[in-house]
């Protein structure tokens, strides 16, 4: 009896595989040759097309939440750089609200820590948080694994990818990572300009120059991120009283420090900052140009007044718009699996 069942499983999975092979050509994560080595260890979780598709299915599956209403994609929408557009803080099941802005999921394999406070040290482990957090999906790992182990479809997929139809925690989070490691944005107008394929306007060129003078130490090219943390002069938000990285390290010097995010696709990932307090890039630049300089933990780079004229701000924003990568934002391979 078991043998018959297994044969059926194999036959079904074979058909699915053949079908998928037609739909998508296999393509492991790829990035420009002059980019740094990623931090993610692919040797530990080797790419496979089946694994990517399984991760993609999980990413878009609301059954992972306790009341089956929200998926990862609820707060991480592709068209907005896998951020939660127009929501200052993330939303969970039953309209519950989190305390921080859902970060954009872009170029994650170059990130050494996750969450605004860097408390999560591994991409695989990150997804445990939204699944189990009461203000997000409010589920348990036990429930999620029970669901995956009782679904014929998932049994076939897990067997294909990991050789075991019974999903384990490790297999589940490896699968999700096989999708999230593929969220690579490297073909913006800026990238095309750097490859000498197109020209920048004068305004964009001026903006790039201003960017390199005032912003690039923390938002380092080509990833426009560093894996550091900074206190960027924001006053403490009165709603959440968020002390940032201090909650993780308990070191005074980390007080009010938050992770330095990537600026890629910044045009579409609003609102900005850890609590989503700014809706417009203009407001962000206004903030950086008017920081109170006597704050105790302010980052050294910001302790000198950044003088930006209204023209400068326009130029900078014009440049920041060149970081939008429409191929990434509209790549059908990353969208809801049909």
């Amino acid at each position: 009896m078991q043998k018959v069942l297994l044969s059926i499983l194999f036959a079904v999975s074979g058909c699915l595989l053949a079908f998928r092979a037609v739909e998508n050509s296999a393509s492991p994560p790829d990035w420009p040759g002059d980019w740094p080595e990623p931090m993610y260890n692919f040797a530990d979780n080797p790419f496979s097309e089946e694994g990517f598709e399984l991760g993609r299915k999980l990413f878009y599956d609301p059954e992972l939440s306790r009341d089956k209403t929200i998926s990862c994609a609820t707060c991480h929408l592709q068209y907005t750089g896998f951020a939660h557009v127009d929501h200052n803080v993330s939303h969970g099941i039953e309209g519950r609200k989190g305390t921080r802005n859902a970060p954009a999921l872009i170029n994650l394999i170059w990130q050494s820590s996750f969450h605004w406070d860097g408390g999560v040290n591994h991409l695989d482990a990150q997804a445990i948080n939204p699944i189990t957090h009461p203000a997000e999906m409010d589920n348990t790992l036990e429930n999620v694994l029970d669901y995956l182990r009782s679904s014929m479809e998932y049994k076939v997929l897990f067997h294909d990818v990991f050789g075991d139809s019974s999903a384990t925690s490790r297999a589940l989070f490896h699968a999700i990572s096989l999708y999230t490691t593929s969220l690579i944005s490297s073909d913006s107008k800026y990238d095309q300009y750097m490859r000498n394929e197109i020209e920048f306007t004068d305004q964009e060129k001026k903006g790039l120059q201003l960017f390199r003078t005032h912003c690039a130490v923390c938002h380092r090219e080509p990833l426009f991120q560093t894996n550091g943390f900074a206190s960027n002069g924001l006053s403490m938000d009165s709603n959440y009283r968020d002390v940032g990285r201090f909650a993780i390290t308990h070191q005074g010097r980390d007080s009010m420090h938050f992770k330095i995010p990537t600026l890629r696709n910044i045009e579409v990932t609003f609102p900005y900052m850890h609590d989503g307090r700014f809706r417009k890039l203009r407001e962000v630049l206004d903030h950086y140009a008017s920081i109170r300089l006597d704050q105790k933990y302010l980052n050294p780079e910001l302790q000198k007044r950044i003088a930006l004229s209204p023209e400068d701000k326009k130029d900078l924003i014009a440049f920041l718009y060149t970081l939008t990568d429409r191929k990434f934002l509209y790549n059908p391979r990353l969208s809801f699996p049909r």
Binding site: V120, I128, T132, H133, S169
Partner: peptide, 14 residues
């Protein structure tokens, strides 16, 4: 070492 064992912090990984 499975996080399902209840011996794992997800928010401050470890």
């Amino acid at each position: 070492l499975d996080p399902i064992k209840g011996m794992y912090w997800a928010w401050n990984t470890g």
